[in-house]
């Protein structure tokens, strides 16, 4: 029985994955032959969406890596980024109907920094108030609290700005580069550049700094890390801060891209990003980035060539299949099963 189960999860899982992967690749090749231009356009969409999913997924994966909590509220922290940016822009005299102008670039950068900072502080507070008291508690207790926190964040944003889609200033150039094969806009490039920049910074931070080292140590073995003199609370706070800062940047990028944001955006975006983190291997930073990209591309392909009304079904099916057959994801988990 035990062996059967192992086969089920191991070899069978690998076989299933390879088959599904090959089928998907074959399908994409056919699409490429049919119309390379339309496939490229879809890929651009997939990559831009995927970059945003990746920014959210990083927060999920970091928090899970360090305290093994699926931070349900994270999707709403993402939305919060956009919501915080609106009054900030207003404070600089940029109304929701504003348009691209070079003058705004420094303000935009400043707002980026401020949003990341505020969002990070909010998330630290959430951790302090809602998760830290439950750290010794069984793992399902903080999970329920996290769901509650998601509702609180969503409810607060709802109370604050109501149920409507909020208009967001259009501060990025609408210019496009088009030839017979490629059609790409400045906005597309902006999303990808911001995402790559942040992921690289994060990677450097985790691998090169002392705090990053502390985070890795804590993720590996919290008790041992504590014995080595690492301030666990500070390290966990830092993790929440960075996760929220990235998600906030993601929320701002999203809002700048689509010029619109709504209070409940983060719920579905968060679930999709979580799927991305699981697909990449939860707890694994590179995995989250890769998973985000893959999920973005899968979603765009389904939207374009199958139907948008099925894309959620397919994404959640992927989530279930990954968890059942290959809980370690594509790149493997950092956290070993205890």
């Amino acid at each position: 029985m035990q062996r059967l189960r192992a086969t089920f999860a191991g070899d069978l899982g690998t076989a299933l994955f390879s088959t599904l992967g090959l089928l998907a690749v074959g399908w994409v090749v056919i699409l490429a032959i049919q119309s390379p231009r339309s496939l490229i356009a879809t890929m651009v969409i997939g990559i831009t969406d995927g970059a945003i999913y990746a920014l959210i997924a990083l927060g999920y994966t970091m928090v899970y890596g360090i305290i093994e909590l699926i931070n349900f509220a994270h999707g709403d922290v993402f939305t919060l980024g956009g919501f915080i940016a609106l009054p900030l822009f207003a404070a600089f005299g940029i109304g929701p109907g504003a348009h691209y102008s070079l003058v705004f670039i420094p303000i935009l950068l400043l707002v980026f920094v401020l949003v990341m900072l505020i969002n990070g502080l909010v998330n630290i507070t959430i951790e302090r108030v809602a998760y830290r008291p439950l750290r010794g508690a069984p793992r399902l207790a903080p999970l329920i609290t996290a769901i509650g926190m998601a509702f609180i964040l969503e409810g607060t944003m709802y109370l604050w700005r109501g149920p409507v889609n909020l208009r967001f200033p259009d501060l990025i150039s609408e210019a496009r580069y088009t030839n017979s094969l490629i059609d790409i806009g400045v906005k597309d490039v902006m999303v990808v550049v911001v995402a790559i920049f942040l992921v690289v910074m994060l990677s450097l931070f985790i691998n090169r700094t002392k705090l990053g080292k502390a985070m890795r140590a804590t993720a590996q073995d919290r008790d041992a890390a504590q014995l080595m003199g690492i301030d666990i609370n500070r390290t966990i706070s830092a993790t929440f801060f960075i996760g929220a800062a990235l998600a906030g940047a993601g929320g701002l990028v999203y809002a700048l891209y689509f010029n619109s944001i709504r209070f409940d955006l983060g719920f579905s975006a968060g679930l999709v990003a979580f799927t991305a983190a699981v697909l990449g291997g939860i707890g694994n930073i590179e995995g989250a980035a890769l998973g985000g990209l893959l999920i973005g591309i899968i979603r765009a392909l389904v939207d374009r060539y199958i139907s948008a009304s099925w894309s959620d079904v397919i994404i959640f099916a992927i989530l279930i299949i990954v968890l059942v057959f290959r809980p370690t994801g594509l790149l493997g988990m950092r956290v070993p099963e205890k």
Binding site: I70, V278, L323, P327
Partner: peptide, 26 residues
């Protein structure tokens, strides 16, 4: 799915809960 650890099980059921009504809907 029941051999999964607690929070993974929660996520699988969540995914299932999202899929089922969509299938009825589609």
């Amino acid at each position: 799915t029941l051999r999964l650890r607690g929070d993974y099980l929660a996520i699988v059921t969540l995914g299932f809960g999202e899929i089922v009504p969509r299938i009825f809907r589609n």
